[in-house]
């Protein structure tokens, strides 16, 4: 029997929905996630396939903005719920999902409803006990500032910046944002320049 099991039988048919149907989701929870319960309507047939392929990327984009995995996963839920009812062509799904994740995360950032990340909570806890926390605090403070500044950037700059820093190529960023490939570098550069000024300004005024 063990031998049978060693053939890794579950590999054959992924039945994600069936395998997890009994679990309780946190959708629509009160923990700050911006995840509305889905309304009724047709759900696209390729949802599972696209989800498997793109979920980590979508979480990665949102995490760039929010700095927290939990918040990023909430955003990803929101984005895939929207995608589930969309008629976005499959070939454009990656760009669409990435842009949607960036916008949703930026909205959350701007609204200030983001949960305190574990990272920050843990770092705060460390502050109490660590003797030499100066460096860590500066870094944390820098991250907080850079995200505050990110929320104030022109939206297209912020999205382009986040997509680029999530590993998306210039041509893909251009296609996703309807920019010319040549202007992606300019847009990203403006965003970085503004954020860097923000960091330097605070660093010099401390």
């Amino acid at each position: 029997m063990e031998l049978v099991r060693s053939a890794r039988p579950e590999a054959v048919l992924a039945l994600p929905g069936a395998a997890h149907r009994g679990a309780t989701g946190r959708v629509g929870g009160t923990d700050g996630g911006a995840v509305p319960r889905a309304a009724s309507g047709p759900v696209r047939a390729d949802l599972g396939e696209v989800f498997r392929a793109e979920y980590p990327r979508v979480v990665g984009v949102a995490a760039r903005v929010l700095g927290s995995r939990d918040s990023a996963e909430d955003v990803a839920q929101d984005v895939f719920l929207s995608f589930a009812r969309s008629s976005v062509p499959a070939g454009e799904a990656r760009g669409w999902l990435s842009v949607a994740a960036a916008h949703t995360a930026l909205n959350l950032l701007r609204s200030g409803r983001r949960r305190a990340s574990r990272e920050e909570t843990a770092a705060a806890a460390d502050d109490v006990v660590a003797p030499d926390v100066a460096d860590a605090v500066v870094t944390l403070e820098e991250r907080r500032r850079v995200r505050a500044a990110l929320a104030r950037l022109p939206r297209k700059q912020a999205v382009a910046l986040v997509l680029r820093h999530s590993g998306m190529g210039y041509a893909d960023v251009a296609a996703a944002l309807d920019l010319s490939p040549g202007s992606v570098g300019t847009t990203v550069r403006r965003a970085e320049s503004a954020l860097r000024k923000e960091l330097d300004h605070h660093a010099s005024s401390d």
């Binding site: 309780t24 989701g25 759900v43 989800f51 995490a63 995995r69 996963e73 719920l81 990272e119 995200r147």
Partner: peptide, 24 residues
């Protein structure tokens, strides 16, 4: 500054389960 130190290891299985329960 944008990088997340916990390097984002999402749990797609749990996430799919959550998504599925939100869909009809």
């Amino acid at each position: 500054a944008l990088r997340s130190d916990d390097a984002v290891h999402p749990d797609p299985a749990a996430a799919w389960q959550r998504l599925s329960s939100a869909l009809p």
